[in-house]
Structures are given as C-alpha cells and as structure tokens.
Amino acid sequence: METPQFVYTTYIATTPEKLWEALTNPGFTEQYWSESRVQSDWTVGSPVRHMRGETLMIAGEVLVCDPPSHLAYTWSVRHIPGYANEPPSRVDFEIEPLGADVRLTVTHRDLAPATLTLISGGWPLVLSSLKSLLETGRALHVMRLSGQIVTR
C-alpha cells in the first residue's frame, strides 16, 4: 500500500457506534456530505455508491469493514467526465475512542493527479460538517445549501 497523500483527523463528542452509523447509513450521510447518499451492504467486495439524487458521484468497492473501528473502500470519481478513467484511489476511516470523544482519522491514498486536485479541498469541510451534525444535530449550512445551489 502506498504512503497516504492526505491524513485528516477530527475529534468528535460521540460514540464509535454512532460515528460508524454516520459513515455507513445513507440517510445520515446525505445530511452532512454534499447531499450524497452513501450506499452499500458493507461486506468486503461489495460495491459502494455515493448518489446525489439520481447522479452517481463516487463508485468504489468495500476493502475493509470492521465495525465500529475500521472501514475502507476504493474511490473513483464518476460524476465528472474524464476522472473515471483514472485508477481508483483508496479511503480508510479509522475510529478510536479517546475518553469522552472519538477520534476519526481519514486517510486517502493512491490518488491519481486529476482526482487529487479535485478532492483535496473537500475532506475538511465534510469532516467539520459531520462533527457539527453529531455534536449539535445540525450539519454545516454550507454543506446543506451547496447541494441545493450546485445540483441540477
């Protein structure tokens, strides 16, 4: 496995189980993740799809599913022409309880050049929004509204 190109962490006042749910339940992901429903049966080898409405945004395959501590899947950008030809990248989500908080570490590796440029700015916003949703019950307004403005 290649060295990660990005490592992002955030500390969230929640439980590992709730955080796992937030990453794997489409009804949850669409609230904080650019209105994308993340769909899979979460068994190793199964497909993963990020759907925004009827649009397939990201496609991948489950590599690791070890609830509630480690989830990994491949990641290919599908909604923009050109990117789908690049080899898939890999995202790992690692969840560790730390006292009253949970540390979420997201590593993204094997990113080809175009995908690298496209996704590098997105994670901090997704993670801030996830933290906000779990801690306050509200996702960030930017994430809620960006979907309304950008899509369709």
Binding site: Y8, P124, L127, S128, K131, S132, L140, V142, L145, I149
Partner: peptide, 25 residues
C-alpha cells in the same frame, strides 16, 4: 490537517454568510 482551521472558518466566517446562501437558494 486543516480540519480545525475549517472549524474556525465555520465558527467565525461562514455562519455570517448563511443569510446570503439562503437568499441564493
């Protein structure tokens, strides 16, 4: 790890934009 900087941007900047974003929507 820019996530904490994003949290600050959210706390001090983005929320002031909310009415404008809502207006656009």
């Amino acid at each position: 790890n820019p996530v904490p900087i994003n949290d600050i941007a959210e706390r001090w900047i983005n929320k002031y934009d909310e009415p404008r974003l809502q207006a656009l929507a």
